[in-house]
Design a protein around this nucleic acid. Structure first.
Lengths: 213, 213
DNA sequence: ATAGGTAGAATCGTATACGATTATGCAAAG
DNA sequence: CTTTGCATAATCGTATACGATTCTACCTAT
């Protein structure tokens, strides 16, 4: 594994963990020193993450975790609503016991952060689709909202609701029930989209109050 | 515009122009010298393009234009079939005269290469959707097949068929006919997918003959 | 007191340099 | 004639270095 991969993984993990909240500036020298490498591979990793929209370069100012508008969040889930059902459809006939076990494991893992576990669950169910591009796009879409998912679930005091939905989806997959799995997945995505939308609008109101001071 | 952007644009253009056929190796020093810059921004640009799947880094060997399997091509068009109708749907109510004019211009432009013109046409019709991420994903999907589209259309002796389809889509957009535009777009994508699939299967047969020699 | 300006520090972006890895060509052995 | 081994060249990946830009804190003038 190259040094660039190391840095990318490190930043990505921080993102899924919710340590890198939107608006955070990433100092290249800091990252380099912390990981014991030079700036070059750090910058290359940041360029990779910026290319997929997870970070943003601002000329001569550095790299920042971009914040999401309500419209962007809505688009994010609209895209997932299109792509993820396709992945599940294609994966369903080829789902192995290993895939199902991995998905179940992700539900009960406590070594993973919330968003890491969420993506691990979905990835396990989608992998058998063998759609690499669709998987990559979906991972990007998951990661893009991860900072917010961390924020709003911790404010709502947990993710029990989401866990129940995951369980229902997993059951449908076990029984090979394509139509049920598909509609449960779409419901799941719509619920998440709704929750995020509420959070972002609330946050917007607060920001407004701040500007009024 | 940063040096990295310059390099990225240069490589991207070569890709859309069909100069960079799959299997081509990109030498970092060559690129740097040709553009009058050092290797650092060159590598950063290549990392960006690799992050979105348009290039592939091979450890200690360099960067190569990846070749597409028939399955990957099929997935590519399956994704476009999902995303692009959504973009057109969202754009249609907001299409301006400027957008329509730009789309028409792309059809008759001879300063652009075939694939550049193709993307310019679709982008003009999608821009009003204001879906940045969906646009970015679509551009990636277009670019990924561009090297092949160049190859198979020049073997088929032109793109008249595709031009007709573009004209029909544009007309439907002018009349604000959402269902017609949508179905014409899907037909257009299916036709392109079919043509590429045929080409790749034929190419596969030839490769087989080569190995037998 | 506040706006504006000016060092100085911090940070960025790119060039140069160099060890590490891989490709290439040629010689010798089978 | 083909294959193996090695020396050399080409290329890659990352560290260091440095000018350029931006940020910060303090100072001055209105």
């Amino acid at each position: 594994m190259s040094t660039v991969d190391l840095v990318q993984g490190s930043v990505m993990a921080g993102m899924l963990r919710g340590e890198l909240v939107p608006g955070t500036w990433l100092r290249q020298d800091d990252l380099a020193e912390r990981l014991g490498v030079s700036k070059i591979p750090v910058r290359e990793a940041l360029q990779r993450l910026a290319a997929i929209g997870l970070l943003r370069f601002e000329a001569n100012r550095g790299v920042v975790v971009p914040s999401l508008s309500a419209a962007e969040a809505e688009e994010n889930y609209a895209l997932r609503r299109l792509i993820e059902p396709m992945l599940l459809d294609r994966a369903l006939p080829n789902l192995s016991i290993v895939d199902l076990a991995e998905a179940e494991l992700a539900l009960s893992s406590d070594s993973l952060s919330l968003t890491e576990a969420n993506w691990a669950f979905h990835r396990a169910l989608y992998r058998a689709s063998e759609c690499e591009r669709g998987m990559a796009m979906t991972e990007i879409l998951h990661a893009a909202v991860a900072p917010y998912v961390v924020l709003y679930t911790e404010r709502l005091g947990g993710a029990k609701h989401s866990d129940d939905e995951h369980g229902a989806i997993l059951d449908a997959c076990r029984h090979g029930d394509r139509t049920a799995a598909r509609s449960l997945l779409i419901q799941h995505l719509d619920a998440a989209a709704e929750a995020l939308d509420l959070y972002l609008k609330e946050e917007g109101r607060q920001a407004l109050r701040w500007t009024r001071h």
